[in-house]
Each structure stands twice: as C-alpha cells, then as structure tokens.
C-alpha cells in the first residue's frame, strides 16, 4: 500500500476512533451546525468540543465555513470514501481467495 494512502486511512480512522467524534459526525449528518449547537447536548465544554472538531477537520471529515461572525460546520462525505473503498477492497481480496479455494476443492476433492 502506498504510504500516502496509508496516512490518509490512519488519519480517518484515528478521527473516527473516539465516541465523541463519532457522535459529532452523526449529529452533523443531520444538518450543518455551529460548535455551540454541538456542545449543548454533550456533557462537554465548548473548548472540548472545539478540539474534537479540529481533529475531524484535519482528517477531512468535516468542513468549516465562516458565515458572518459564525462558524458553521458541515460533513464532508468524501472524507470517508477512502476508508470505505479500503473495506470494499478487502472484501474483494477474500472473495478471490474463496473462489480459488473452491476451484482447488473442485479439482482435488471431487472425483
């Protein structure tokens, strides 16, 4: 695997490895929000949420837009695409191996 791609996956999965950040992503999947909107339902300070937001932002999973004096956050589905493709590739890898095993058994086991 290329190092660059591996780094992208590391960042994505590191960002997703925290339950608070997953909850933030799920909240944002329902619509754009400000940090204060996200912080309200969580037992966490604004600064705490802000740190998690920064991690998600640097992993490319969310985007921040400044509208007037407010910072609005929105989800970037593209950010998850690499991770999703990776899982699909693993399934394809094993599917080929299972086919090859089936072919071998057809040959060696069946008379």
């Amino acid at each position: 695997m290329m190092v660059e791609r591996s780094a992208v996956l590391d960042r994505t999965y590191a960002a997703l490895s925290d339950p608070t950040r997953r909850a933030l992503l799920v909240a944002l999947s329902r619509g754009d929000a400000r940090i204060s909107d996200l912080a309200d339902p969580l037992p966490m300070t604004f600064a705490g949420v802000s740190r998690h937001v920064a991690v998600l932002e640097s992993a490319g999973l969310i985007r921040r837009d400044v509208r007037g004096r407010e910072h609005w956050l929105s989800i970037r589905p593209d950010g998850l695409r690499e991770a999703e493709r990776w899982i699909a590739e693993q399934a394809a890898f094993w599917s080929e191996r299972a086919d090859a095993l089936a072919a071998r058994l057809e040959r060696t086991h069946r008379r």
Binding site: L16, S17, P77
Partner: peptide
C-alpha cells in the same frame, strides 16, 4: 485501528454503522 492513534480500544467499533449512515445520507 493502527497502533499510533491515541486510542486503540473500541475505536474500530461502530464505524461500519457510521459509514452506512453517512453513505445513506448522500
């Protein structure tokens, strides 16, 4: 999850669910 991330417990969990949800929302 890779070893170098801040937490390597429970991290991978829920991602499939999350991915599914994100993709369904597209």
């Amino acid at each position: 999850p890779p070893e170098d991330v801040e937490s390597h417990t429970g991290g991978w969990s829920s991602i499939a669910e999350l991915l599914e949800r994100q993709l369904a929302a597209l």
